[in-house]
Design a protein around this nucleic acid. Structure first.
Lengths: 139, 139
DNA sequence: ATCATAAAGTTGTATATACAACTTTTAAAA
DNA sequence: TTTTAAAAGTTGTATATACAACTTTATGAT
């Protein structure tokens, strides 16, 4: 049987495949530093944002992170269950003192992860990543 | 309480956070085109690779995709269950005729997804993505 | 040929992700 | 103030992801 379409397509050029692979590479590096705190990449992103920028509504977080609202809800649940976030002032989600304390404690390890990745990327690579994001989000 | 570390860290600079957001953006675009075939990004990547490059061992696929072997195993299981891949010539994984036929049929929609993303990225953005991957994988 | 070790593959488990459908809250109109 | 509609938030479900621990297969030494 003839597969003309397949003959013209090259899976190595697939943007989605490249980005998923990129995601796994960076996730593997960050996980090395974050797993001792028993917290994931996504959870840390949420905790960092709320610890730095104060209380946010879920919709606001969802938009900032470009994350589906049900996915965000699940991430928030786990952080609330651990006492790191609170919904006491609904609809605002806020970091608790324990959450801010943990985020504060994690910064040195997060910085190590950043250093490792930045060493691999180089300035040029880091700027390239920002360009990619800028093209996709501001067009 | 004072959070000195938090004061110096900016979550917006987090490479992992940026890449996860990038991944969601590109995944959302590709999903629009792939979901009518009831196949996911990851499954398509596997099916494309095997349809184009012939049978591979799981370890080989795992290395090409930089995917954890248990994750790959799960993806393969679903494709085997659907009759799109076969392990009849273990340890080789191969696309079946049905799998190659489906991959062939999907190419036009995949190409549309690629066109939409390439229009957003521009040549500069696409080259930037390749640079990022190159820096992370070849250092 | 056999044995021991390493590598590859599989499975249990937990978390992440998103869709669809639902419930609750908010906002606007009457 | 009440009603209606829209928006936001929640939950059920399926697939993706990876770790740890296991089983199976392959390889090298004897």
């Amino acid at each position: 049987m003839e597969f003309n379409n397949l003959a013209t397509a090259d899976p190595r050029t697939c943007i989605s495949g490249k980005v998923m692979r990129l995601n796994r590479i960076t996730a593997n590096i960050f996980r090395k530093y974050l797993s001792p705190f028993n917290i994931t990449d996504s959870q840390l992103t949420v905790l960092f944002i709320l610890s730095k920028m104060g209380g946010k509504k879920q919709k606001e977080l969802s938009d900032i992170m470009v994350m589906e609202k049900s996915t965000l809800n699940r991430n928030l649940q786990r952080l609330v269950e651990r006492g790191l976030l609170t919904k006491d002032e609904f609809p605002l989600i806020q970091a608790t003192q324990a959450g801010k304390k943990l985020a504060n404690e994690m910064v040195p390890e997060w910085q190590k992860a950043m250093n490792e990745i930045q060493n691999l990327l180089g300035n040029e690579g880091e700027q390239a990543l920002d360009l990619v994001l800028h093209q996709l989000q501001n067009n």
